[in-house]
Design a protein around this nucleic acid. Structure first.
Length: 411
RNA sequence: GGAGGGAUUCCCGAGCUGGCCAAAGGGGGCAGACUGUAAAUCUGCUGGCGAUGCCUUCGGAGGUUCGAAUCCUCCUCCCUCCA
């Protein structure tokens, strides 16, 4: 997307889209104004700690914001927190994070960047490792840095205060995390720092450090925390309520269709580019019943798959979704299970055992239960007898529930 | 160092005056109905075994008993209080 000719107000509105808080907004306006006069782009910083390999939509929201700023002509700086990752961000945590070794961190970095550069333009993004400066610091420097923070200030934070109150461990190394993140902003002289609202404290520390170093303080642009597929908890891998960037188009489409109607608009705002005024119209039409929630969600699913895969993949995923869920047909790509003579007894196989063999049940007992509940079909026919010994036919489709399939073939 | 409290099936959490305990309840997951979708709601299932029975499970190892998640001994880990 080329740099567009926008008014200051328009640019500000774009930047504010999908944010929970911009602080201080007035200063952002000033910076943007100055940027227009001097033609010097603003430095927008996003720090990521490569603690895990797989990213999901929740992780990517600030990255999308960075991309937007990049498209607006500002300088996108991605800070890989190879040093901060070894400490582990305590934000919002009720226990100490495991400390990673430098090797683990560097390994995660690669997969991290692969995923992030699906969004950001690699040619226009500056990538820096915060080890560049932290590895060179002396103990003296560290003491200096630590003198910028007081215990009282740290304990203003709810997460730390809670842990302290509840006599949970609170290691000293966690205390310097915000200082490290803040120092990153000093090191690159950031104008803007992006992050989830849970990063607010750390971003404010960055501002303070910049001020004491006589630098212009950065602006914080924070997005709300994305609610996961369950509609309750924040999106996270451990809760399993996530849409992963590496999910296949069909999976991504289906998962999007499974979010609740109430959550739809949040997703639209945070992870698509659909213009705000269009979203407002949609919201109104949903309310009056002019627009069907399912239609709106289909649109959302297409946008999301389109963004992380491709437009074509989105259309294909939608077509498949319709085939499977509307017309109850079999999807294109389903796992194949080959039966050999060893699997058969007198030319037959017990249906429950077949389900296990096909990976559709974890035990014969579970297979039996699925059948008793009417959840199993062979070539579209419901299996009613859990004791059925089935004589296999080549190229048969076995189905459990609405969306799990396997094709049976004979060796 | 001393005094207490705890560890239960995927998770949380009852049970712990020994049999009725494969173990309440909730969450999650899965299936069914309905539908507007893998929304919402409602219902059912949720250790293993070709199974009205058998096997393994209640932190670990022993023991008491016809019988132990429940009682005893030792051990490991976690928490609280005192110093």
């Amino acid at each position: 997307m080329p740099t567009q000719v926008l008014s200051l107000e328009e640019e500000l509105a774009l930047i504010k889209r999908g944010t929970e808080e911009v602080f201080p907004e007035e200063e952002l306006k000033e910076k943007l104004k100055k940027c227009r006069q001097t033609k010097k782009p603003l430095k927008a910083k996003l720090g990521v700690d490569p603690t895990g390999a797989d990213l999901h939509l929740g992780h990517i929201i600030p990255v999308l914001k960075l991309k937007q700023l990049q498209d607006l002509g500002h300088e996108a700086i991605l800070i890989i927190g190879d040093y901060t990752a070894m400490v582990g961000d305590p934000s919002g945590r009720n226990k100490t994070r495991p400390q990673l070794t430098h090797e683990q961190v560097l390994e995660n970095c690669r997969t991290y960047q692969d995923q992030v550069f699906k969004i950001l333009d690699p040619a226009k993004t500056r990538v820096v490792y915060n080890g560049d400066w932290f590895s060179k610091m002396t103990f003296h420097d560290v003491i200096n840095l630590m003198s910028q923070m007081t215990l009282a200030r740290m304990l203003e934070r709810e997460d730390f205060a809670n842990r302290f109150e509840n006599q949970m461990p609170l290691s000293l190394h966690e205390m310097i995390y915000p200082l490290m993140q803040g120092y990153d902003s000093v090191a690159i002289e950031a104008d803007i720092e992006l992050g989830g609202i849970d990063q607010k404290f750390n971003i404010l520390v960055g501002r303070d450090l910049q001020k004491t170093m006589n630098l212009e303080p950065q602006i914080g642009i924070c997005n709300p925390i994305l609610i996961g597929l369950d509609g309750k908890e924040k999106m996270s891998k451990s809760l399993g309520n996530y849409i992963g960037l590496k999910d296949s188009p069909s999976e991504m489409y289906g998962k999007t269709m499974s979010i609740s109607d109430e959550l739809m608009m949040m997703y639209f705002e945070l992870i698509t580019d659909v213009p705000i005024d269009k979203l407002q119209t949609m919201a109104k039409e949903l309310e009056t019943g002019k627009l069907h929630p399912m239609e709106a969600k289909r649109f959302l699913a297409r946008e999301i798959v389109g963004r992380f895969h491709s437009h074509d993949a989105a259309l294909e995923a939608e077509a498949e979704f319709d085939r499977v869920f509307k017309e109850n047909q079999v999807p294109d790509d389903i796992p194949e299970v080959v039966l050999t003579l060893d699997d058969l007894e007198h030319g037959k196989i017990w249906i429950a055992r077949l389900l296990v063999k096909a990976g559709l049940a974890t035990s014969n007992g579970e297979g039996r239960r699925l059948i008793q509940q009417g959840g199993v079909r062979i070539d579209g026919e419901v299996v009613s007898d859990a004791n059925l010994d089935w004589s296999p036919k080549n190229d048969t489709v076995i189905q459990v529930g609405k969306r799990r399939f396997a094709r049976i073939t004979m060796a």
